[in-house]
Design a protein around this nucleic acid. Structure first.
Lengths: 230, 230
DNA sequence: CGGAATCCTCTTCGATACTG
DNA sequence: CAGTATCGAAGAGGATTCCG
């Protein structure tokens, strides 16, 4: 094996920028290939199985996924965990180093949003990520957390026929693709209303007043969550 | 021409993620190909000619550079300007949309820095970008600008046998690869000292006390600049 | 000399098929 | 479920050539 610096390359020479001094070039050696950042984004929504990733990333071929996961794992950005029986499945999750990419990915997504066609949020994971993106926002990237004293358990959000989970913990939002069995609160709404809430076109108070959302459990926590979305 | 949404694709179908709703996927369609972000980083240091870019990005072939520039221009991230005679040269520079990528690129570079081998800043543009990266920092990304009342003209920084320019304007740092003819101040130092200053291992006051930097002009402004680097 | 287009080789990607 | 194997198509790298 020919290793050049701490960055792990494959046995056969990968295509690299070969600038081991340059943080940007090295970051791009690790993340710059096709699909890699989209895989990381999927994993920002919690640990996922190989098949979850394959299903969530339409167009990504299975050999590429395997290769990318191997590369990310080798370099300490994700790691594999074997779930205990009866689940007996292997899942991939981000390491702390991988988690640090969240603000960056959110920023990139918000930058790219001006080029999108404006329709949005047609899929659970996209919905969860949109919520994270809005909450983190361009100005909140690793900056002061609003209302840092608020602490909630995990809430479930039902949007049309799919569910996501959200947890607001000390001002930090974690969204998950897989909601918990026992959420502390549940909100049910339509894709259209959810999109308006996330995009800030409708406030939480307005949605509640218009009976556009149905709530069970500790409503104050959900209101606090959506209140932070512009 | 087959256009799908506002994103401009080439006549022959480019490889795309084909998720016109997803800000991240669209951003990666624009920026995710090899060399593209490195080209943008070069342009963060001011307008550059084709040849400057070709020289600054070792390993990038001329056909790729031409193709990337065309793609970036088509999508409004950079634009070409013809300099008036006698210069009579065309330069590429970032549009405001392209400029917005600075915090993102800085963040990515800082994230990648842990994988570098630690030696650093061996080239003018790398030096300039390192200064920007440190000044913007992980916590200062589009956040509160420190000492926003400070305003300077453009300073020249001579490091060994090359020069860069720096301007601190209302707390926002602009670094340029090409220093102005009439800088308001000049600081001269070695690559080693400069690296220590940028990396925060040496304070400006220490460097001045140790006569490790030589200063002409308005020293207070330079001190203010380096004082912001940790 | 600046700013590319062309040609050729090699690598990577994408789709499908197949295996423990 | 979690990958590996294979193969044609597209993209990247390098050298050379062309044009003003």
């Amino acid at each position: 094996m020919f290793l050049r610096g701490p960055l792990q390359l494959s046995p056969v020479a990968r295509r690299t920028y070969d600038l081991p001094d340059c943080g940007l070039a090295v970051a791009l050696d690790l993340l710059g290939e096709r699909w890699t950042l989209l895989i990381v984004r999927e994993l920002l929504l919690g640990p996922q199985r190989y098949t979850d990733l394959n299903d969530g990333l339409h167009g990504l071929s299975t050999n590429l996924l395997a290769e990318r996961l191997r590369h990310l794992e080798t370099n300490g950005i994700i790691h594999r965990t074997e779930l205990p029986p009866p689940a007996a499945s292997t899942v991939y999750e981000l390491t702390p180093i991988g988690e640090e990419l969240q603000p960056l990915i959110v920023q990139l997504a918000l930058w790219g949003e001006r080029f999108t066609d404006g329709r949005s949020v047609s899929e659970p994971r996209a919905a969860a990520f949109a919520m994270v993106a809005r909450h983190c926002g361009p100005d909140a990237v690793s900056a002061a957390a609003p209302a840092a004293d608020i602490r909630t358990g995990e809430c479930r959000i039902d949007i049309d026929d799919y569910s996501i989970a959200a947890q607001l913990d000390a001002g930090r939002l974690r969204a998950r693709a897989h909601p918990p069995a026992q959420p502390v609160a549940v909100v049910r709404t339509t894709g259209e209303v959810y999109r308006s809430l996330v995009n800030g076109q409708m406030s939480w108070a307005e949605a509640v007043a218009a009976h556009a959302v149905h709530v069970e459990g500790d409503i104050s926590q959900l209101g606090a969550l959506f209140g932070h979305l512009r």
